[in-house]
Design a protein around this nucleic acid. Structure first.
Lengths: 196, 196
DNA sequence: AAACATACGGAACCGTGTTCCGTTTGACAA
DNA sequence: TTGTCAAACGGAACACGGTTCCGTATGTTT
């Protein structure tokens, strides 16, 4: 677990203890504030919650995207790893795809504002898009190929486009009781089936 | 065209000529700036383009939503009126629904940032949501009912939810060549068909 | 032409992201 | 243990965009 002299070639020169401690504290504070106020909460709020100055945030996480990625990395990884697992679990590829998409939707709709920020074209969020897409599109692509090979869905559905579409459908899904993202995503998945 | 003493009961006390002129100018300027920079362009840009002070904008259009509504009112009305027309045009209700949705999608994707702002939960945009929803949901509802009555689609699709979903799918559809909102919306509509 | 209300322009204000700089603190060596 | 120095810190300062305020200008009416 100690990576202070491990890793890639050069000895990453010891990080100071207070810096490491602050990074942890910030991660916890950010997670709490994200839950309370969404991922676009003011930087000052997060700093205050962590008991540090604003510059400390920028030092550890140059862009908001970096902070968001750090907070949710575990869950994104888990989602990515669930793809192959579902495919191997015995269900049909189409069922596996449906369940995996549901996992993704559940993740997004419980993170206030995350879906919206995933769509933001603000330059600062470039790395955020890239991370989600790099990590999840291949998994989705794999599932789509399996379902297409099984003849369950039309073969011309693009994984990138599907992920963006699903992400979009999740925008604002919290705070609108009349809107159920999962139902619409279900319709979308249903629409991918071969015409018979 | 002169509505200075016509209309609803009370004599709307003459609006000053310069005010009326500025309102026009502002509408034109806003339309131009919206095309160039999207519907979230800085207020100052619009004021500058119109050659007026910022306060003049707020005087005529208290919130940005009012300005956006004023700029796009004609097109929204046209879209709303196209619904019944399509239904009466001889095609099946499902086809009419599909075409109408395409009209709506075309409208949204060509107005930079409008779809995103339609989903914004910023309080100032409340009237914008309300206007779009009030005007279009009944039309959509009518089309859905016709298609459901014809047995072409499942009867449990909610017009409000569908409109929001379609709107969401249009977010960011400009400026991403790999993302085609129309294709995804097509999948969604296809998913509404009765299982056979 | 005078009087008055309407409308105007731009400065001022406020909240939020981002950067800068003087100060503090942990790490390492003597 | 103490001295030295770079790493890290905190908060003030800055930039920018939305919103409001107020002194001034202008259209309208008598």
């Amino acid at each position: 677990m100690n990576d202070s002299h491990g890793g890639a070639g050069r000895a990453a020169p010891h990080k100071r203890a207070d810096a490491r401690r602050n990074e942890r504290t910030l991660l916890d504070a950010a997670a709490a504030v994200f839950v309370a106020s969404g991922v676009e909460a003011p930087v000052r709020d997060i700093a205050a919650r962590a008991g540090v100055g604003v510059a400390t945030i920028y030092r550890h996480f140059p862009t908001r995207a970096d902070l968001i990625i750090a907070v949710y990395r575990h869950q994104v990884e888990a989602c990515a790893e669930a793809g192959p697992a579902l495919l191997a679990s015995g269900a049909t590829p189409h069922a596996a795809l449906g369940r995996w998409i549901n996992l993704f939707v559940d993740f997004l709709v419980t993170k206030h504002g995350l879906a919206a920020v995933l769509r933001s074209d603000d330059a600062g969020f470039g790395t955020l898009h890239a991370y989600f897409l790099d990590r999840l599109v291949p998994v989705c692509s794999h599932l789509l190929e399996a379902a297409a090979a099984a003849g369950e869905i039309r073969p011309d559905v693009d994984a990138y486009e599907l992920m963006r579409g699903v992400g979009n459908l999740c925008i604002g899904a919290d705070k609108d009781p009349r809107y159920d993202a999962r139902r619409l995503v279900g319709l979308l998945i249903a629409g991918m089936r071969v015409p018979q």
